[in-house]
């Protein structure tokens, strides 16, 4: 592993993303990416007693499908989710009988898990499985209000994605896809004093901007190097802020940028306010749509920047502002 610049690490080994699996709920399946997901549950309770159990079921399904199709026993399972004490991931690991690390950076957890898994493989492990998940209804009852409460939320709010995404990283390119993780940029916390819990786009945009600029500087590249620069869940409103922030730094990513929160739903027709969010947002979009584009060689270089707003109900009720982080990783097709 070679350190480049301030926060970026380039890998000497080939770390392949050999397989992915995505599971979503019914609303995500009505969105523009409906043909890309691996499995869809038509009932967001998945036949379980609670939304927490349903989220675990989705997370477990994604992980088990990866293990089943690849006949592999990974050296480590790394994952995260939005619920207190990351119970979804821990309870998934309970069923898997694999060495387990839990990570939490809210909606950037997928990025953190990829980074941790890549470092593990670079340091000698053979394979690692990662997964992150979120569920609209379990997140809503933890962070916001009861589902049946009749209140309006502002247009810049976001809708938590119901779904889970899992990926398998390995030193062997099992399916000969040739998709490798080239480098990672570990994000720093950005906090510009946003206190509105509905305004996660504004809270997270500076973190995304910071990680993108740092990645460019550290690797000495610019936006034209990439086919796509994908952010996690800034949604339409946050993406707009990100583009302006980067413009102020003389960087233009307008032609390459797209945001998973804006992609997963039809923001005009599906009543999702500004777009999707949640630890499952980036995971499901990356593991379905973007992974397929990479496999088909439609795109070759991808900078992924999942973003996370690190607030809790306690911190926001005590008037704290929302710290945010974005963990970037660069994926290329060999």
């Amino acid at each position: 592993m070679i350190k480049k610049g301030k926060q970026t690490y380039q890998f000497e080994k080939d770390i392949f993303i050999t397989d992915t699996y995505s599971v979503v709920g019914p609303k995500e399946n009505e969105g523009p990416l409906k043909n890309y997901f691996h499995k869809v549950f038509s009932d967001d309770l998945c036949g379980k007693n609670s939304y927490e159990c349903a989220e675990q079921h989705m997370s477990l399904t994604a992980a088990q499908e990866i293990l089943k199709t690849n006949y592999i026993n990974p050296d480590i399972y790394i994952g995260g989710d939005l619920l207190n004490q990351i119970i979804t991931t821990a309870f998934t690991a309970r069923q898997l009988n694999l060495p387990y690390w839990g990570v939490y950076t809210a909606c950037a957890s997928f990025g953190e898990a990829i980074q941790a898994a890549s470092i593990c493989i670079e340091s000698g492990m053979n394979s690692a499985m990662i997964s992150t998940s979120s569920h609209f209804s379990s997140a809503e009852r933890q962070y916001r209000t009861p589902l049946e409460l009749g209140v309006q939320r502002p247009d810049w709010a976001q809708w938590t994605v119901t779904g889970a995404g899992a990926a398998l990283l390995s030193t062997n390119d099992l399916d000969s896809n040739g998709i490798v993780i080239k480098s990672i940029t570990v994000g720093k916390i950005s906090d510009y004093g946003v206190t509105d819990v509905d305004n996660m786009g504004a809270a997270m945009a500076p973190a995304a901007a910071d990680s993108i600029i740092t990645h460019f500087e550290d690797n000495n590249v610019d936006s034209s190097y990439f086919d796509y620069i994908i952010t996690g869940d800034l949604a339409t409103y946050g993406s707009d802020i990100l583009i302006s922030l980067l413009n102020k730094n003389n960087i233009d990513i307008k032609n390459q940028h797209c945001d998973c929160g804006a992609l997963i739903y039809d923001t005009k027709a599906q009543h999702v306010y500004s777009g999707g969010s949640g630890a499952g947002c980036f995971a499901t979009v990356f593991c379905s749509y973007f992974y397929k584009l990479l496999c088909n060689r439609k795109i070759k270089r991808l900078l992924c920047v999942p973003t996370g707003a690190l607030l809790s109900t306690t911190s926001s009720q005590q008037g704290e502002s929302i710290p945010a982080v974005a963990h970037a990783f660069c994926v290329e097709v060999k």
Partner: peptide, 21 residues
Amino acid sequence: MKKMSKEEYKTLYEQKKPKAK
């Protein structure tokens, strides 16, 4: 990223906010 004050950032994101109908 270039230094930016909290106030400057607030003006930026308030400008971008969708107008309440």
